[in-house]
Nucleic acid binder design. Structure first.
Length: 889
RNA sequence: GGUCGCGUAGCUCAGCGGUAGAGCACUCGCUUCACACGCGAGUGGUCACUGGUUCGAUCCCAGUCGCGACCACCA
């Protein structure tokens, strides 16, 4: 044993303890137990630890450490995501700050080199932060989504999907981010409500009035796109317009004739019932245009400025004008022409790029797509059949809903940082998809009948999520058939936030089912969102973002971890408050002091495998009884991902059972018991502390290791300890100890209520106790005397005059305090207890008085109720007798 | 419009057919020899509302009100 200082200095101890664990190789898969693997959701290379990371990685760490204790061969796979857009953005911003040339001026290769340099320098910040948190990730296996192996996996997957027709190129509308000048997927678009306007414009009929109607009025929220209108659509059943179908209108400003068509899409109830069709700049219009073979007229360039093309007739004055400026011009011109028919304020949903924050423009471009619908089939089935389960289960609905309505996944990005699309084009544009350029050349040579040609690689890169979709197997070495894949695939659990289900979980499922023919993980644990202490979503603009690092500075990693775990309930977000972290810091200190107490009493932890069935004292047997109940409870809670229940069970046992009662009850034995009792109690306390440290270690790894080391008198370490599996049950010891505890509590309560001074020692008189009670009082006398501040314990038939009387466990006790008793307080106390007992009795009797209850309720419940009647009527009787005696004074 | 969730002690949350729980906060005592980041004792709840099912509902069902999230749509 090593002397423990007064308090735990987390700032000194945590880094030291972490290094020791890592140097001992404890984070690598150990032994030959049943493998258990978790892959970390790879943090962005640009990322730093936020509360969401802290929560998710705490939970994963708890699972991994718990499984290691159980003897499993655990791999917690670490890695980092290259985060295409985010990273490119950060580096570009840095270049701008340093007033360096723009990326386009230095060229692609030089820019990508700069990003790699940036990554080498400042890319791994989160790693150190995770280490501070205590995350037991296997750092030696760190992967990066753009490292060689993972890039090879990406190419393998792309080529195979391409060859099997599941990746294809298509020209259709995409979400275009004018800021980053790239396509983004549906998921990267954030639809936000904004205050907008709706304009009504009149388009004159080209061939003059029909039945007195000379124009058709359309409504639009995007006037500038009218320059690219290809038609006006009305509903075929809309009688207002039946006569106009097939006629032409003259599109103002551009003076182009476009048809009025009938289509189901326009809703007669909305707007004017007539809709302008701009196929190249609106997703719905695109579909209508396709159905009717209406030309798609592109109006804008990559920066969303109006341009001239051979297919459009945008007037010269619009060329190079930003879309929002063009809007003003169009409105002004139409107003000028007298064709503006109204402006209404309207709340509209507008799409924004989730990274750039700018308004997304639907653009007609060539992009690469994954046939997600085909891949979704097996991925959906895997969840439906239970091969992969969501926890909480209801998230599977979200998953199904998404999968069943899945759209083609746009995977190409017009960025420079990312996996380059493995497609090369011949001089005539023929694509050759291959894992290497050499292979592409071979394909080309074959295609061009042996003629060697220049090939140019596709300039696009892949969506970042394409590589992370392969994460569970690519990090384990795929496409090679590695030992790690054999051992650890499928992984056990994937832990993540709900907003990642579509981005990542679904895509991992699809890729895994296609390439591994097996699920990537058996469980998907969806953790809660961390909110601030007022339950508000954290956001930079609100300024309520909690920095987990600050809590770790102030209190250490252990209390933060325990706080997060204790609040990780299912189906509800959690509110993180400083007070709560502080509370668990106090818990850590409590445990620390309990260990100090053992140390003062010379009770070490030893290598001995203590067998509780050798204990003889009820206290020690009860301690073991409760300890095994706790560790079993924690284990089953963790199996069910109930981190909150697990944390509560340990907290409750440690503080309430072990510290409040066991240590206190042990004191009289350690002070005045026989040497055999003392020796046994020492072993029991040691057993209790060891159980706490071993079960708490997954939650609070630092303090547990420090305490184990300090208290250790053997050669084993905490890492040699297995999760307790023995189940020691002794109900009669438990019953006895519970009776003693109840008695002590009631004596204390009565003393307080009648104002007996804390220091005063008084006598306890049991009134005609049963033989059992008498024996327990005898055995537990030192404990009762010490904890309830009792001088002597006696037995009599009648109480002395002027005594406080309590009823506990069916026995009446008297506390003679004639000189200090506050008569009216005692009377009030008795009345209160009488009222309580009477109320309970009445309730129970009421139930039994109900004919239908007795006949229909299960017999066990009826018996229970009868027992309650017996108990409370007895109590009531004794309390009433006590009151009479008091009144007789 | 579709889907999911939540309304339980002042606060943050467990519980979810048969005596309403925890932590924090609050009140009153305590420098009791592990711990004042502590010890002891307390206060505090028609479990949102209305119906229904049931011998019995905080718990199940239906509806209402309030709050939130996600997806879709709105020319």
């Amino acid at each position: 044993m090593r002397d423990l200082p007064k308090t735990f200095d987390h700032n000194e101890a945590e880094p030291r303890l972490y290094r020791a664990q890592e140097e001992a190789g404890l984070f690598k898969p150990q032994g030959d137990g049943d493998p258990y693997a978790i892959v970390i959701p790879p943090p962005n290379v640009t990322g730093s630890l936020h509360v969401g990371h802290a929560l998710n990685n705490t939970l994963q760490d708890i699972l991994c450490r718990f499984r290691r204790r159980q003897g499993r061969k655990v791999l917690w796979q670490y890695g980092v995501d290259h985060a295409g857009i985010a990273t490119q953005m950060v580096v570009e911003r840095q270049m701008a700050e340093r007033q360096e040339p723009h990326r386009r001026d230095i060229g692609r290769d030089a820019f990508v080199e700069k990003v790699w340099a940036w990554k080498a320098e400042s890319g791994g910040m989160i790693k150190g932060q995770l280490q501070r948190l205590g995350a037991s990730l296997d750092w030696s296996r760190e992967r990066f989504t753009m490292d060689e192996g993972l890039s090879a996996a990406v190419r393998r997957v792309f080529v195979q999907l391409y060859n099997e027709g599941l990746i294809y190129r298509d020209k259709r509308l995409v979400n275009w981010d004018p800021q980053f000048q790239t396509a983004i997927s549906d998921l990267e678009v954030e639809n936000r409500e904004v205050n907008g306007k709706m304009w009504n414009f009149a388009y004159p009929l080209a061939e003059g009035p029909v039945d007195g109607i000379s124009e058709i009025v359309i409504a639009t929220t995007r006037p500038e796109t009218m320059l690219g209108d290809g038609a006006v659509a009305v509903h075929p059943d809309d009688e207002r317009y039946t006569n106009l179908i097939g006629k032409k209108v003259r599109l103002p400003i551009v003076d182009r004739l476009i048809p009025i068509i009938a289509d189901e899409y326009p809703d007669p109830e909305l707007g004017t019932g007539a809709v302008k069709i701009t196929g190249a700049h609106d997703f719905n219009d695109f579909e209508v245009a396709r159905r009717h073979d209406i030309p798609l007229i592109v109006l804008m360039d990559a920066e969303a400025r109006m341009i001239a093309t051979s297919e459009n007739d945008v007037p010269k004055r619009y060329h190079g004008v930003d879309r929002f400026d063009a809007r003003k011009m169009v409105i002004a011109e139409l107003e000028e022409m007298g064709l503006l028919r109204g402006i209404d304020d309207k709340v509209i949903m507008q799409p924004f790029g989730d990274r750039s924050g700018v308004v997304i423009e639907p653009m007609l471009t060539d992009q690469w797509y994954v046939d997600a619908k085909t891949l979704a089939g097996p991925a959906t089935e895997a969840v439906r059949s239970g091969k992969t389960k969501f926890v909480p289960e209801n998230w599977s609905k979200t998953y199904f809903n998404w999968m069943e309505n899945i759209e083609p996944w746009c995977i190409s990005r017009q960025l420079w940082w990312g996996h380059r699309i493995p497609v090369w084009y011949g001089p005539d544009g023929t694509p050759f998809c291959a894992e290497t350029e050499d292979d592409a050349h071979r394909l080309a040579t074959e295609h061009y009948d042996g003629e060697a040609v220049e090939l140019t690689q596709d300039t696009d890169v892949l969506d970042t999520w394409f590589s992370s979709a392969l994460w569970p197997f690519s990090t384990l070495g795929w496409p090679d058939e590695t030992q790690e894949l054999q051992d650890f695939y499928p992984t056990a659990v994937l832990s993540t936030a709900f907003d990642i289900i579509f981005f990542w979980v679904a895509r991992m499922m699809m890729m895994a089912m296609y390439f591994k023919k097996e699920v990537p993980f058996h469980m998907v644990y969806i953790h809660a969102l961390v909110r601030d202490e007022n339950g508000q979503k954290m956001s930079k603009s609100k300024g309520n973002v909690v920095d987990p690092l600050e809590y770790m500075d102030a209190f250490g990693a252990d209390p933060l971890r325990f706080t997060l775990a204790s609040q990780a309930t299912q189906g509800r977000d959690l509110s993180l408050s400083k007070q709560r972290v502080e509370g668990y810091r106090n818990f850590r200190t409590k445990l620390w002091n309990a260990a100090r107490f053992l140390q003062m009493r010379d009770v070490p932890l030893t290598d001995e495998n203590i067998d509780p069935s050798t204990f003889k004292l009820p206290l020690n047997r009860w301690l073991a009884h409760e300890a095994t109940r706790m560790s079993a409870g924690v284990a089953s809670a963790l199996e069910a991902f109930r981190f909150d229940e697990a944390a509560a069970a340990i907290y409750q046992f440690t503080w309430r059972t072990y510290c409040d009662w066991c240590l206190e009850l042990a004191k009289p034995i350690l002070d005045e018991g026989s040497s055999a009792d003392q020796a046994e109690t020492r072993r029991a306390l040691s057993y209790g502390l060891k159980t706490i440290l071993v079960t708490l270690e997954p939650f609070m790894p630092f303090v547990c290791r420090e305490l184990y080391d300090a208290m250790n008198d053997g050669i084993q370490t905490i890492d040699d300890q297995r999760w307790p599996t023995e189940s020691f049950v002794d109900d009669s010891a438990a019953e006895q100890m519970e009776m003693v505890i109840a008695l002590i509590s009631e004596i204390r309560s009565a003393r307080t209520e009648v104002n007996v001074p804390v220091a005063a020692k008084i006598d306890l008189i049991a009134l005609s106790p049963s033989a059992d009670v008498a024996q327990t009082l005898e055995v537990q006398s030192p404990a009762i005397r010490r904890l309830a501040r009792i001088e002597n314990i006696a037995q009599r038939a009648d109480p002395p005059k002027g005594a406080v009387q309590i009823v506990s466990g069916g026995t009446t006790y008297a506390l003679p305090v004639a000189d200090v008793i506050d008569l009216s307080a005692e009377l009030a106390r008795l009345d209160k207890e009488i009222a309580e007992a009477a109320a309970q009795l009445k309730k129970a009797e009421g139930k039994l008085g109900n004919e239908r209850f007795v006949s229909k309720a299960p017999p066990a419940v009826v018996e229970e109720e009868k027992a309650r009647v017996a108990k409370f009527s007895n109590e009531l009787e004794q309390l009433s007798a006590a009151k009479k005696r008091l009144e007789a004074l």
